[in-house]
Simulated assay, not measured.
Amino acid sequence: MDSFAVVYAPLGQETRTEQVVQRLRGAITSGLLSAEEQLPSESDLARMLGVSTVTVREALNTLRAQGLIDTRRGRHGGSFVCQLEALDQVHLRFFQTLTTEYISDLGEFYCALAARSAWLAAQRATQDEWTLFARLVEQFQAASTAHTRARADMRCMITLISYAQSARLVSQSLQLQNEWMPLTVVLYEKNGIHERLVTDYQQLLKALQRSDATQSRALIEQQIEFMIEQILTIKMQN
């Protein structure tokens, strides 16, 4: 499953406007949908997500009001992802409102979701998919700013979770990005974090390529536990 399929995979019957908003907002903030990328038409979105066009229209109105997309008229018009240069400040303000208890709880949920996904992905993904994942790890290594590193990290994680071949895990991971992304942007401002996590991803990739489910799960748990520890340290120092 590629990133396009993850973003536009059908939603469940219980879906409402806010769930569509969360799905697309998570994809935008995590970098699955890039700046200036055009979204499918309202009718195509409704068909792919399994909802009504009215629900899609309401969701797009919300995203537009939040400054995440803009709509252009004309023959080449449509809804496009906005440039998000100011998003770092939004993430920082959000981080400042969080408690250590909230961060710990969110991190534990993220760790559980990612660990199970890695365990499944090691058994289910193909070598071609691991080749793609290796390229994403290389992109993460090459990223040079806190925001681009955070977005590359999120792309690696969402892709890994998609390899578990569970629609529920994918849906949960996209919703989670809205809360987790601000924490990682702040984290990657800290010296030495990026280099450590590049090494972690490289070790994880080797275990995944060997189809070693147990080792893959252990490595992703260690990686996210390290991130949580560092994020809590930053929080307590502020």
Rank of each mutant, 00 (worst) to 15 (best):
L197V: 08
E221K: 09
S216C: 05
Q139Y: 11
S3A: 08
N238M: 13
I228G: 03
A112H: 06
N61T: 07
F133L: 15
L183P: 06
Q66R: 08
I103E: 12
Q127E: 14
Q141G: 08
T184P: 00
L92N: 02
L132V: 15
S211T: 01
A213K: 02
P10W: 05
D88W: 03
R116E: 15
T233R: 13
V56K: 03
L232C: 04
A164M: 08
A207D: 03
G77C: 10
N178P: 02
L176V: 06
L219W: 01
E229Q: 13
V81F: 13
E37C: 10
R93H: 05
Y110W: 08
M157D: 14
T53L: 06
L113G: 00
D212L: 01
A142I: 00
I228P: 05
Q139M: 06
L132T: 15
T17A: 09
M181F: 03
Y110A: 07
A125G: 09
F94R: 07
E18I: 11
I158H: 14
W119P: 00
E195S: 12
A121W: 05
S3Y: 11
A152R: 12
L204N: 06
T214F: 04
R72M: 12
G107M: 04
A9I: 01
L160C: 03
L39I: 00
A167I: 10
L205R: 08
Q141P: 03
M157H: 14
Q83V: 11
Q230M: 05
Q202I: 04
A146T: 06
T126A: 09
A213W: 02
G192Q: 02
G67V: 02
Q209F: 00
Q223F: 06
S43D: 14
S30V: 04
T71K: 13
F140R: 12
V81D: 12
Q223L: 12
A134F: 09
A134R: 15
T62V: 15
G67P: 02
R210M: 01
P182D: 01
D2G: 06
R72C: 09
V7C: 09
M157L: 14
Q237R: 14
V137W: 14
T159L: 10
I220Y: 02
L219Q: 13
R217S: 12
V56W: 01
Q203I: 11
A59F: 05
R124C: 03
I224W: 02
D153N: 15
Q22I: 00
E138W: 09
T148L: 06
V20E: 09
L68P: 03
Q66E: 15
A27R: 08
L169W: 11
P182H: 02
I234P: 08
S52W: 11
E225C: 05
A142K: 14
V56P: 01
T100Y: 04
T131V: 12
Y8S: 00
R151C: 09
Q127H: 14
D105R: 13
R217A: 09
Q177S: 14
T145I: 03
Y8L: 00
E179I: 00
S79A: 15
E101R: 13
T62C: 07
A59G: 15
Q83H: 14
G77W: 13
